[in-house]
Amino acid sequence: MNKTLVTAGLLFLSLISLPAQAGKTLDSIRQRGEVICGVNEALVGFSVADAKGEWHGIDVDVCRAIAAATLGDARKVRWVPLNKMQLFPALQSGEVDILSHNVTWTMTRDAAMGMHFTSIVFYDGQGFMVARKSGIQSLRDLENTDICVQSGTTTEKNLSDYFRARKMKFRSVVFANFEASIKAFLSGRCQSYTTDATSLLSLIQRASRTPGDYVVLPELISKEPLSPAVRRGDDEWFAIVKWVINALITAEEEGITQANVEQQKVHGSASAQRLLGHQEDTGKLIGLDREWAARAIAAVGNYGEVFDRNLGAGSPLNLPRGLNRLWRDGGLLYAPPIR
């Protein structure tokens, strides 16, 4: 009896003293020698593993660039594929260092879920995919139809808002993941399938043998700025992620590419030399060494190269840059200056 009481007391004591605070993220990354990156399970262009288990995509390249900047080696990343239900708890609980998971930056998520969004890496909008032969031309035609959607995204709310504002009726058919919802759509269960427009194009590539039979309607009904997110409470780590992304965008502005990064370091413009650590040491501002940006760019290339390889002309998706052009080309990409 006494022994039981002692055991119970000890358990109680150990619970009282449970530490709530984790160590600094960068320190633990250096100690374990890898960045733990939470990515989408399979979304062509964003993050998807090939037959050899090698990961590809724009979200994946962001993590590679961060690993190159912090650890000096773009391969030192542990990939943690997460579904829509797992992704926030995985970041909150410290299972991953960074969520690079085509997540939309919203106020609720940023302000009330224990995380910070860092920098937008992709501007998307919610669209609707229909079968070409259905004859559906615009969102007006979707009144009273069944719409397939997956749960746990901003999509469901945008959908309701849009139809409610126009007093149009619809029925949503909600599935747990992309695969189930697109399968239901392809079987003809729903007249349309809705999610981020880019994801629609990406998903149909994998799900259908004749992706040309499906089209995305011209109207986009929402803003979907996709950004990596980190846990709150570690400003240094937040700054590192934010500035690595800014460095990739700045590299495109400066014409620094994966191929010419060494040459630009010495012969580039003043701001290129500053970015690459030749003139100034910007690394020490964020707790890294002076070569941080040069290594990140050497590992994945500038933003434009990352885009082309994963989503643009160099990929099966062949998406136009659209909103994701540099500001001076009429797009929205505008990185604060690195100086």
Binding site: R109, M113, S151
Partner: peptide, 14 residues
């Protein structure tokens, strides 16, 4: 469960 999942993701109250 389906509705709670959606609520969870939208409100963040896991």
């Amino acid at each position: 469960v389906s509705i709670a999942n959606t609520s969870l993701n939208q409100s963040g109250r896991a």
